[in-house]
Design a protein around this nucleic acid. Structure first.
Length: 202
DNA sequence: AGCACGATTAACT
DNA sequence: GTTAATCGTGCTC
């Protein structure tokens, strides 16, 4: 697949094991069409949240209004609100009825940087998409973007193929911010990021 | 109906 | 390193 392919990734890309999806999303381009302006950035950090048995995953609470979209088909967005002020963007993975998703934690800004800077309150380029809540703020993503189909450009939000990241440049670690999540889930190495990228969080 | 807390961030000491 | 900001969600009473 050419690296300049400007079509949304097909649903088949997302209908796979969540860790595979998270790993392969690195290097892909997250695109946001906002008020006629194209904003985008390269995904450099992502985490897998896998099923009701993963006690760090919101689906541990079972099927609720909030988690319903994770039980649906892959390739849809799961956007949730937390800490009273932040929005987080996930992409649903795996087969229908198996609740799992990939949290997008950081992007390297590419297009529409001036608009992103305005949405972020005039922050430095490096800080625009460095963290899951920063990324959604930079792209103008909130409640309205929950449950949209990322395989359709009409959603105004999708992901395109990009420069694949060589395996030796992908680092793995435990997921961030899990607080009092019990072991073994707390230490599962399900966070993937581009080694050495200054746009990775923390 | 009430409550504890969160897949965070920015601004402190 | 510590902490306030701020509210939807899920759990308990």
């Amino acid at each position: 697949m050419p690296s300049h392919d400007s079509h949304p990734l097909p649903r088949d890309f997302y209908t796979r094991p969540t860790r595979t999806v998270a790993r392969e999303l690195l290097g892909c381009r997250l695109v946001r069409q906002l008020n006629g302006v194209r904003l985008s950035g390269v995904i450099v950090e992502a985490e897998a949240y896998i099923g009701e048995g993963d006690l760090a995953c919101h689906a541990k609470a079972g099927r609720t209004p909030r988690t319903a979209v994770m039980y649906g088909p892959a390739g849809f967005s799961y956007v949730y609100f937390t800490y009273g002020m932040h929005w987080m963007l996930n992409v649903v993975s795996e087969e229908e009825d198996f609740p799992a998703a990939v949290l997008l934690r950081a992007i390297e800004p590419l297009e529409g940087i001036e608009v992103m800077q305005r949405l972020r309150g005039g922050k430095d380029l490096r800080m625009l998409g460095r963290g899951p809540a920063c990324l959604t703020q930079a792209l103008g993503i909130t409640r309205a973007e929950n449950g949209v189909d990322l395989c359709e450009q009409e959603s105004g939000l999708w992901i395109e193929h990009g420069e694949p990241i060589a395996k030796r440049h992908v680092s793995v670690s435990p997921r961030i911010g899990l607080g009092k999540t019990p072991e073994p889930w707390l230490s599962k190495p399900w966070r993937y990021f581009v080694a050495g990228s200054p746009f990775v969080s923390r």
